[in-house]
Amino acid sequence: MATIQEFSISDTLWARLEPLLPVHVPKPHPLGRHRRRIADRQVLNAIFFVLRTGCQWKAVDATGLCKGSTAHSRFQEWVQAGVFARLWDEALQDYDELIGLNFAWMALDGSLHKAPLGGKKNRAQPHGPRQRRRQAQPLDRSTRHAGGAGAGGGEPARHEIDGEHLA
């Protein structure tokens, strides 16, 4: 099992990330009190922990990095400020300098039309609250009648063993 320290941001990475973060201007509290703001680096460690592991925001509480609600609200604040978009741009620039990006082999397809083998137009669609899972309604409902398929009032199936009926 990985420890929390394996997910922490290195000093080199933090030096690159810190200028991308917006400067926080504290709002004065009406009663003159407030909790101290948790350090951005600590919250960013929690955000990256969630992004790397895929855990829920509330699971961050158990890590001791910060509260999950704090990490989530700061994540939303930084998404609105465009921090992660700028981080993506800088990462692409770094990758281009180190390895190089070649867009010549990429293509963009913007066509919007029905797939050629997309299926029939009037296929059976699930409808109705009484319908069980994986049980589609028949296409033509006019063929249903009281004693027909799906009525459930028919005679139970008979089981036979060597020509003898078992009830």
Rank of each mutant, 00 (worst) to 15 (best):
Met1Lys: 01
Ala2Leu: 13
Thr3Gly: 14
Thr3Ala: 09
Gln5Met: 01
Phe7Asn: 10
Phe7Thr: 10
Ser8Ala: 11
Ser10Asp: 03
Ala15Thr: 05
Ala15Lys: 09
Ala15Cys: 00
Arg16Met: 06
Arg16Val: 01
Leu17Phe: 09
Glu18Gly: 00
His24Pro: 00
His24Asp: 13
Pro28Ser: 14
Arg33Glu: 08
Arg36Ser: 09
Ala39Asn: 12
Asp40Leu: 01
Asp40His: 12
Val43Ala: 11
Val43Asn: 04
Asn45Gly: 00
Phe48Pro: 01
Phe49Asn: 05
Phe49Lys: 03
Leu51Gly: 14
Arg52Met: 10
Asp61Lys: 03
Thr63Leu: 02
Leu65Cys: 09
Lys67His: 13
Gly68Val: 11
Ser69Asp: 14
Ser69Ala: 12
Ser69Phe: 04
Thr70Leu: 09
Thr70Cys: 14
Ser73Leu: 07
Ser73Asp: 15
Trp78Tyr: 06
Trp78Ser: 01
Val79Ala: 01
Ala81Gln: 13
Gly82Ser: 08
Gly82Pro: 08
Phe84His: 07
Phe84Leu: 04
Asp94His: 06
Ile99Pro: 00
Trp105Gln: 08
Ala107His: 08
Leu108Val: 15
Pro116Glu: 14
Asn122His: 15
Ala124Lys: 09
Gln125Cys: 03
Gln131Ile: 07
Arg133Leu: 09
Arg134Ile: 03
Asp140His: 08
His145Gln: 07
Ala149Phe: 11
Gly154Ile: 01
His159Leu: 15
Glu160Trp: 14
Gly163Lys: 02
Ala167Pro: 06
